[in-house]
Nucleic acid binder design. Structure first.
Length: 645
RNA sequence: CGCGGGGUGGAGCAGUUGGCAGCUCGUCGGGCUCAUAACCCGAAGGUCACAAGUUCGAGUCUUGUCCCCGCAACCA
């Protein structure tokens, strides 16, 4: 056993300017997988994610919504935590740069570097667009004008503090030289050196006087600390750096791995190490710059319509399916394609056919041939096919470890699947159904034992990236948590004699490609657009929405869709209205019949799955729980068609 | 000549220090019936973008050409 088995892994702290999409999840999911893996191996893991909450953009967004920046970021953090909960991200700490300890620590770090002479006061020259309150560089300008509003920019000078980045140039280069494993992948390191060092490192402007929403410089309060010293330092302030309670700092620093996107790789490979050098702190052991996802071949953006809430994917498949695809299909470090078609294909072939079906057929056989009881009998000789299976099973974990330690998650997973396919093949070779017919009870039980034991071993590393599946498998093959430890998966034969197997629910139902999948509900889209359009509406605008009491008279499913009901609703008009609503997952047909609900009656008609919908039912909640707004009929009934105000 | 990445059987990708071109899916043929129309076996299909060069030998090194895609001070 190695001494000091600790593992500190971080994701970037995300900037609350847009909503999360699959790409955002990817990095966090990867960190989560590594954290789970290290925990299983007995490491003392500290896994941190969080949000970078200061800056002008936040200020502007909040202003546009008519709320304070703090309210804005609080709202965002709540949403982020909600998403991480859905994905079951096992972070140990959620870091926020608006947390008090962080603010104080940043202020102290600033003063420390100022006193040391690594921060000095100077003058920032830039091209400024007054209406936009933004600085631009020469190269950002469009035809010499502000890229945002197209107006003239003027050169202004602003008093600023600078960090002596140039001072650390040689030490940084030397460090890269001596620690080839520090920056990965290799190609990104080359990019850094070529692009920036060769051009020379300029000192870095670390304060602004134009931004209010940020951390004040104590010795000069008209300045706020700019992103570099505020955001990057989160990795140490979260551990209590500069405070009395810095046991965490002693225990976990230096970080073992900073996982970052390629767009911020530069800051983590140049600026952050320089800051640490200035603070006389050791550098993180590794900074890994992963690639970006494209969705269906297109860059993720709203205009391509692929900027979807990741929960859409989970809703139509499962958390485990999404986690599997992202970690298996994308070569860590490179850009990857999140193809929705491929996602379904992979889920069906790898998860349903290979893994799910294996568990299903093995548990079925144990029930059918031996009343669910697994028999261990070591006195029987092993046949060649047995030895082959057992060898593969015992080799799997060591290979898996090798790849995981190299951050090659896709290859690590491939090792598990090699064993799964070996087990499927073993069934064909050993033909248990023939043994059953021949009433060769001993051999049959031996074969079944080997299969169940293989499944147990397979399930152990699955715990690194699956949330629901490992425990489902454990229940079905009747093993306890103690029989699922990392070390136990290295030896074949741990499974006890007399283990009770019971065929349970199907692990991964096959997904029917003809179903309409991953569709963003119209209502959801409108909601987000509404939010984009920002904030407050007047009473007149509210009056534009015509709300009436409606009673559901008929309910039928829309044939082509998984989620849509076609409803006939009485809103006090001569004829019933046809309204299509995505309530199938949340209400049964009979639950809806007769309900008096709130209907938007002047909504522009829309075709959903070929059926025209004339209105919309109001409901609350999203994804997990959706509840219709229904009338309180305790004290008498309102007529259908009554106005609502 | 701003920087970088990539062009490999129908699709998506792997290919370490140059040594008979691999994987998954799909297609076609066969087998099996324990299983989620799943599983197992076999087959077809590539002049590794193009051209020249180094070498006994290049997808892998050098040079040039064409095409695609990112980045260019903060979108993961």
């Amino acid at each position: 056993m190695e001494e000091n088995k600790k593992y500190y892994v971080t994701t970037p702290i995300y900037y609350p300017s847009g909503d999360f999409h699959v790409g955002t999840c990817y990095c966090t999911l990867m960190a989560d997988t590594l954290a789970r893996y290290k925990r299983l191996r007995g490491y003392d893991v500290f896994f941190m994610t969080g949000t970078d909450e200061h800056g002008q953009k936040i200020e502007e967004k909040a202003k546009a919504r008519g709320i304070t920046p703090k309210e804005y970021v609080d709202e965002f953090v709540a949403k982020a935590k909600d998403l991480w909960k859905v994905l079951d991200i096992s972070y140990d700490k959620y870091m926020r740069t608006t947390d008090e300890y962080h603010v104080k620590a940043v202020q102290q770090i600033f003063e420390k570097l100022l006193a040391k002479g690594d921060i000095y006061k100077g003058e920032y020259k830039g091209l400024y667009c007054t209406p936009c309150e933004s600085f631009w560089t020469e190269t950002q300008l469009v035809d010499g004008k502000c890229p945002d509003c197209g107006r003239e920019v003027k050169e202004v000078k602003e008093e600023s503090y600078f960090f002596k980045l140039s001072k650390y140039k040689d030490r940084l280069l030397q460090y890269y030289e001596e620690h080839p494993e520090f920056l990965e992948p290799e190609k990104r390191k080359n990019e850094m050196v070529k692009n920036f060092f060769d051009k020379g490192l300029e000192d870095l402007c670390v304060t602004r006087t134009t931004i209010d929403w940020g951390i004040r410089v104590i010795s000069d309060p008209k300045h706020t600390v700019y992103v570099w010293l505020d955001a990057l330092t989160n990795y140490i302030t979260a551990l209590g750096y500069t405070t009395d309670q810095d046991e965490m700092m002693k225990k976990y620093w230096p970080a073992d791995l900073h996982l970052v996107g390629k767009e911020i790789f530069r800051f983590h490979s140049i600026i952050w190490p320089a800051i640490l050098m200035a603070l006389d702190l050791p550098l993180p052991k590794k900074v890994f710059g992963h690639g970006w996802l494209v969705v269906n071949g297109n860059k993720i953006s709203k205009s391509f319509g692929n900027y979807k809430d990741p929960r859409i994917y989970i809703r139509d498949t499962s958390v485990d399916a999404l986690r599997y695809y992202l970690i298996k299909e994308i070569t860590f470090g490179d850009d990857g394609n999140f193809s929705e078609d491929l996602f379904i294909e992979k889920t069906n072939s790898d998860l349903s056919n290979d893994l799910g079906n294996l568990v299903s057929r093995v548990t079925a056989m144990v029930e059918k041939y031996n009343q669910g009881i697994v028999v261990k009998n070591d006195s029987l000789p092993l046949e060649d096919i047995d030895k082959d299976l057992i060898n593969s099973a015992e080799e799997m974990i060591p290979n898996f470890e090798k790849y995981m330690d190299d951050l090659k998650t896709n290859e690590a997973i491939a090792e598990i699947w090699k064993l799964i396919s070996k087990a499927n093949k073993y069934i064909d070779l050993s033909t248990p159904w023939v043994l059953a017919k021949e009433e060769n009870k001993d051999r049959l039980n031996q074969v079944l034992y080997n299969l169940v034991e293989t499944i147990r071993i397979v399930a152990v590393p699955l715990q690194c990236f699956f949330i629901e599946t490992p425990s489902k498998i454990m229940n079905q093959i009747g093993v306890t948590k103690e029989e699922m430890t990392w070390e136990s998966a290295k030896t074949f034969g741990v499974l006890k004699d007399g283990t009770k197997v019971s065929k349970g629910e199907i692990l991964f139902p096959r997904i029917d490609k003809t179903e309409e999948l991953f569709k963003v509900e119209d209502e959801v889209v409108e909601e987000t657009q509404e939010e984009e359009r920002k904030g407050i509406i007047t009473i007149d605008e509210l009056d534009k929405v015509e709300l009436k009491v409606g009673q559901i008279k008929e309910v039928e499913k829309v044939a082509k869709s998984k989620k849509l009901y076609k409803l006939q609703v009485d809103v006090g008009e001569k004829e019933l209205r046809t309204i299509v609503s995505g309530l199938v997952p949340y209400y049964k047909e009979e639950e809806l019949l007769g309900k008096q609900v709130v209907v938007v009656t002047n909504l522009q008609p829309a075709k959903l799955c070929g059926v025209e919908s004339n209105g919309m039912l109001l409901a609350a909640g999203d994804y997990d729980v959706v509840k219709l707004l229904v009338l309180d009929n305790n004290n008498g009934i309102l007529e259908n068609g009554s106005n609502i105000h």
